[in-house]
Amino acid sequence: MKWFLRISAALTSSFVLTMIVVVGSFIMTMFSAREVGVRKFGLFGAVFFHPQEQSDGSTILEAGVSNGAPIAIIFVLLAAFQVAVASVLERLKAHKRRLQEAD
């Protein structure tokens, strides 16, 4: 149960953190795209922003995810890091408890 909770908490928070990274990268990419007709990429090629001029002179914006792999890697790395930190922290706490009890 403890591991289930630890992993689900890590997955939840890494999901939120990944979303923050994706949204932040997307916003930076969007505002770095100054030229119409040029596709700009961000977050290691994961997100793109593409303003295009139509024949009637209007501009349409195409945006989205071009490659999900970097996002998936970020998600997995963040989750693994959090599980590792939580495990180490738990062991350190247990060690501290043992030391206090020994006193």
């Binding site: 939120v16 990944t18 979303m19 923050i20 994706v22 949204v23 997307f26 945006a63 989205g64 995810v65």
Partner: peptide, 13 residues
Amino acid sequence: IVMIIALGLNIFN
């Protein structure tokens, strides 16, 4: 957090 998740999912389209 809710706004970031909603915006993020919107980007994924």
